[in-house]
């Protein structure tokens, strides 16, 4: 099952994909739906829900701010 992080800009979403890839976590860059982004027009990364905790640690370690989308 796929889960998502919200990153804001496409630049940070791409940075997140790269950071996760370097640590062996598969993810893909996505544009968030309107319900997933309060201010409209945002990007995120989608990954396996089982990888979310590890992915969160990787992103935090890379200095990338994110929001977990429920």
């Amino acid at each position: 099952m796929a889960c998502r992080f919200g990153l804001g800009s496409v630049t940070y979403a791409q940075a997140a994909v790269n950071a996760l890839s370097r640590r062996g976590i598969r993810s893909r860059l996505v544009k968030l739906a309107a319900r997933e982004s309060k201010r409209g027009c945002a990007y995120g990364v989608e990954t396996d829900c089982n990888d979310m905790k590890k992915a969160a640690r990787v992103l935090t370690g890379a200095g990338i701010s994110f929001k977990e989308i429920k």
Partner: peptide, 17 residues
């Protein structure tokens, strides 16, 4: 316009956008 937070009248806070 830069594709980020379109509903916000302000520019995004973070670089590069």
């Amino acid at each position: 316009g830069n594709g980020v937070s379109s509903l916000d009248v302000n520019m995004p806070e973070a670089l590069p956008e």
